[in-house]
């Protein structure tokens, strides 16, 4: 399955969620999203949270967040 992140094609496994596409695109961005510094929006500009299931049609964009999350953590498993 392939989706778009920041205009670039990103290949992910079948049954992937938003977080998988973001991790595939950039672990650094994934860490910043978990830390509430950035967030993911869809084509319509709606925020899409990391657990969202992907259909293969998504065009996602990573944008700066206005504030940090309360449950700050980097989400890394590396």
């Amino acid at each position: 399955m392939e989706v778009e992140v920041n205009g670039e094609p990103v290949k992910v496994f079948s049954g992937a969620r938003v977080r998988h596409a973001i991790m595939s695109y950039s672990l650094e961005d994934y860490r910043l999203i978990n830390a509430g510094k950035r967030l993911v929006v869809d084509e319509a500009g709606n925020e899409v949270q990391l657990g969202g299931e992907l259909t293969g049609r998504e065009k996602l964009t990573i944008v700066e967040a206005s504030g940090g999350r309360e449950d700050l953590q980097d989400g890394s498993q590396g």
Partner: peptide, 11 residues
Amino acid sequence: GNSATAIAEPG
């Protein structure tokens, strides 16, 4: 539901 989209201003 399902896509975890937070639609702040529904259209």
